[in-house]
Simulated scan of single mutants.
Amino acid sequence: MITRRRLLGGLTAGAATTLGLTQAGRALGAPARPGASAPSAAGIPLHLVNRSGAFANSSVWVYLVGNDGTRQVHVTPDGELRPVALADNGPDGFTDYAIPLAASGTTTLRLPPMSGRIYTALGGKLKFKAVQDGNGKAALAYPAGWVSGDPNYGVVHDCAEFTFQNGGMYCNTTMVDMFSVPLAITLTGARQQTTGTLKDGARAAVFSAVRQAEGFDRLVIDDKRVIAPGHGLDSGLFAADHLAPAIDEAWSAYENKDLTVTTDAGTFTGRTRGGTLNFTGPRTVSFGKPSTRDVLFCDGTLAAPNDGVLGPVAAVLGAALNRSTLAGHAHQPTTDPAAFYQQRLTNHYAKAMHAATRDGKAYGFAFDDVGGFASYIEDPAPTEITLTLTPF
C-alpha cells in the first residue's frame, strides 16, 4: 500500500517554509510499478461538486498545486500545467492561482500527471506566495491554517492530497494538520471507490467533541477549523506534556514482559530497559521514550524512514500510542477499532474524526494508515476523480 508517508520528497523539493512555516511535503507519492503504463499526457477529468449547503459556487475557489517531479507547479483553469514563477506574485505580493467553480452544477477540470494538493477556499481566496527556495528555485509558501499570523488564517479552507503518476492515482482526504471543510473523494477506474464522506451533522459533531475533550478545547478556532493537537502544541494551544502519563505507562508495561510488533519484515520482540524500548527480530531496533510531540507528529524518536524495517515498527508504535492501545495490548498492531481511543489520555482529535466518517476512516495523524484506517484510496487505472464538498 502506498501511503502519504512513502515519498516525502514528492513535494518537498522546492517547498517553501515561509509565511505559515509549512511545507507541502506530505502529499502522496507512488514509486513506479513494473509493467505500469504512463497516464495520458492529457490527464483525467477532475470533477468538483459543491454540496456544502453553506457556500454558493460563486464563493468557492479551488487551487491545484504541487510538483511534476522536477519543479513546483500549478494548474490553470484550462488544465495547463505551469511552473511556479516569482513573477506570478501580484501587487499584493501573492499569486492568484484560484480556479472558480462553474456558476452552477459540477465543475470539470483536467488533472495532469503530478503530485499535489487540491485546496478548496470558501468565502474568500487563498494567498499563495511564490518565493525562492534554498536551491534558488521558485516555490510556494502554502497556507497554514493553524498559524494565527498566516495570511490565510481567516479563510475557511482545506485540502485533499493526491499523486497521479506511473499509471495510477493515489489520494486521500487529510486531517493531519487540521479539519475545516468536509471533503469526499470518489475515484473511478478499475473500480469505483469513495472515502472521506462525513455522517450527517458530523462537522458540528467534530467541533463539539474536540471542544469538550479535556485539554483539547483551545484547538477549536471559532467555526473555521479544528487544529490538530501537534500544531496546537507548537502554537501554545495544547499542553506539551499532555500524553506523558500514557506514554510512561506504555513504556513501563514492557519492563517485565514482551511486546511483539509484526510487520511485513517479520515479528519483532521488545522489552524496555533504561527508558529505551529495544527490539530483536529481523533486525535490532530501539526507540527512546517519545514526547507528546513525537507521538502527535509521528516524528522525533518515532520517525519512520522508508527502510522496510525500522519505519514500519515506528509506525505501529506511533499508531498504538495515538490510539491508546500500546499499554494494554502486547501484540501489535491492534486492528480492532473498538479498542481504539478508550483511555482518558488519547488523541481525541483523531477519535472525533473517525467517529465522524461514514466508513470510519480518517487521516487524523500521520500513522493512521496502520491497519488500513486512513481515508485513502488508490486505483491502477483511473479514468476520473471527483472531489465533493459535502454538507456542513
Results as ranks from 00 to 15, higher is better:
271 R>D: 02
329 H>Q: 14
239 A>G: 09
233 L>P: 00
337 P>Q: 07
261 V>R: 11
317 L>N: 10
296 L>E: 01
323 R>M: 08
220 V>I: 04
305 P>N: 14
281 G>E: 03
355 A>I: 03
245 P>T: 08
267 T>Y: 02
261 V>F: 10
233 L>H: 00
253 A>F: 10
329 H>K: 14
233 L>R: 04
352 A>P: 01
237 L>K: 06
327 A>C: 04
338 A>M: 02
279 F>R: 05
344 R>I: 05
249 E>A: 15
299 D>P: 00
310 L>G: 03
312 P>L: 12
352 A>W: 02
297 F>V: 01
253 A>Y: 09
252 S>Y: 02
287 F>S: 07
216 F>C: 03
349 Y>V: 06
328 G>R: 13
224 K>H: 05
300 G>I: 08
275 G>K: 06
306 N>C: 09
353 M>F: 13
277 L>K: 04
263 T>Q: 08
285 V>E: 06
227 I>M: 07
305 P>W: 09
297 F>I: 00
338 A>H: 07
236 G>Y: 00
344 R>S: 12
342 Q>K: 14
260 T>K: 15
300 G>H: 10
315 A>M: 15
313 V>L: 09
228 A>T: 01
325 T>H: 09
222 D>P: 00
220 V>Y: 00
225 R>K: 11
272 T>H: 10
241 D>V: 06
291 S>G: 08
275 G>I: 10
259 L>P: 10
233 L>M: 13
313 V>E: 04
291 S>V: 05
290 P>S: 05
299 D>M: 11
339 A>H: 07
218 R>T: 06
226 V>I: 11
352 A>E: 04
225 R>H: 02
272 T>Y: 09
343 Q>G: 02
236 G>I: 00
230 G>N: 07
356 A>W: 03
238 F>S: 01
275 G>R: 07
256 N>R: 15
241 D>A: 14
264 D>L: 13
342 Q>W: 00
247 I>S: 10
245 P>H: 09
284 T>W: 01
335 T>E: 07
304 A>P: 08
256 N>L: 15
247 I>N: 06
348 H>V: 03
250 A>R: 09
288 G>T: 11
252 S>C: 06
276 T>D: 08
300 G>M: 12
339 A>R: 13
337 P>S: 10
275 G>M: 08
276 T>E: 14
266 G>R: 09
257 K>D: 14
243 L>C: 03
332 Q>G: 07
344 R>M: 07
313 V>T: 04
282 P>K: 09
336 D>R: 03
345 L>Y: 06
223 D>N: 12
260 T>Q: 15
325 T>W: 07
286 S>R: 15
246 A>R: 12
264 D>T: 13
